[in-house]
Amino acid sequence: MKKKAISLFWIVCITTFLLAGCSEYSVNADGTTTLILAENQPADYPTTIGAKEFARLVEEKTDGRYKIKVYHGGQLGDEKRAVELTQLGAIDFVRSNTIPLTEFNDQIGVLAMPFLFEDEKEKWDKLTGDVGNDLLNTFSGTKLVGLAFYDSGERSFYNTVRPIKSPEDMKGLKIRVQSSELAIDIVESLGASATPMDYGEVYSSLQNGVIDGAENNFPSYYTSSHYNVAKYYTVNGFQGAPEVLLSSQETWDQLSEEDQAIFKEAAMESIEVQREAWDQLTEVSKEKVTAAGSELIEVDDVSEWREAVQPVYDKYGDTYRKWIERLTEDE
């Protein structure tokens, strides 16, 4: 264990040294400053498009005093490592999904609760409003600064066995989940057997019958080619944890209050472009999987699904009660 800790320490030190040595990390000869943003998705992915729009807006709003270079495709490490380097100040900005961030901020996990919002309008009204801003502020003390939420769609179940129209149809199925206690609890509340598994193993496990199904959004269902082996996709949007755009506290503290306001404004304005890109990718993915023979089972009324996951709310209610009430109450 000690050797592992030492190894990780040196990896962080070396990465920090390499990044700090880049010309982008300091004030340039012309007086402008180039900052670094880590993104693990490809160049044409919606979150990368959102990050690039954020960078464009910052440069425009500061009259070129600040430029942000977006390193996409995981060039600066996976999400967790990039977040850790952002905490250290070796990376200036990072985009990460909510679920990995629960390791750094236990309050943000409320956004992964099942069937949390009535619809997309309510969700984004909340995430771009006062309660969303207050949730971003829960990163205070983590050496991270929350700037904005990005769209990551709605996760639904898909499987190789049968069309799932109700929670009753979930019973007995082995469903792959992320390595998260909450993810396990959700699936088991629906009567299925939760099977934590690395994402890279899902395709072959579906193909070989090790698992019967999994859950994800449309773009991931399509780009992973899981639709080739799991034809039944139940559109019930049981979980919609968003992405989060974050700044290093160290970088943030070096900005003037005026520039902090500009960066925050740019982050919020970039949401629209990111969400448009997400909607486009979702529609393309739907068309592709449908053309390939996938059966989409639309769930218009999720009331019985909400009732089935009530044990999850009973278990996590004390932890998230304040946020659940604010996220679901009428304003």
Rank of each mutant, 00 (worst) to 15 (best):
Y25L: 00
D259E: 14
L327D: 04
T15G: 00
A29Q: 11
A267Y: 02
D318K: 13
S294P: 04
I36Y: 05
Y45H: 15
A241T: 05
T251M: 09
E188Q: 14
A261L: 04
A55C: 05
N137G: 12
A183G: 05
E272S: 00
D259S: 02
W252R: 05
S166P: 07
T62D: 01
Y199Q: 11
V289I: 15
D92I: 04
Q280L: 00
F263N: 03
K52W: 01
A277S: 09
D198Q: 10
F17R: 07
D253R: 05
Y45D: 08
P311Q: 06
G213V: 13
Y227K: 11
I175L: 11
L111N: 04
S205N: 09
I14G: 03
V161I: 15
R81D: 02
D318L: 03
S193E: 15
V27A: 01
V131I: 15
D314Y: 12
A230Y: 08
G153K: 01
G89I: 06
W252G: 00
S152I: 08
N28R: 15
M197D: 07
N217F: 13
D119F: 13
T223C: 00
G191I: 11
E79Y: 08
R65N: 10
K67D: 03
T138F: 10
W124A: 09
N159V: 10
D130M: 01
G317V: 12
E272K: 12
Q87S: 07
L173H: 14
Q260H: 06
D301I: 07
A5P: 05
E331T: 13
K121F: 08
T62R: 07
I14R: 08
R56D: 02
E168G: 03
K322T: 15
E257P: 12
A261C: 04
I108F: 07
A230Q: 12
R162Q: 14
A183Q: 14
T138D: 05
K80G: 01
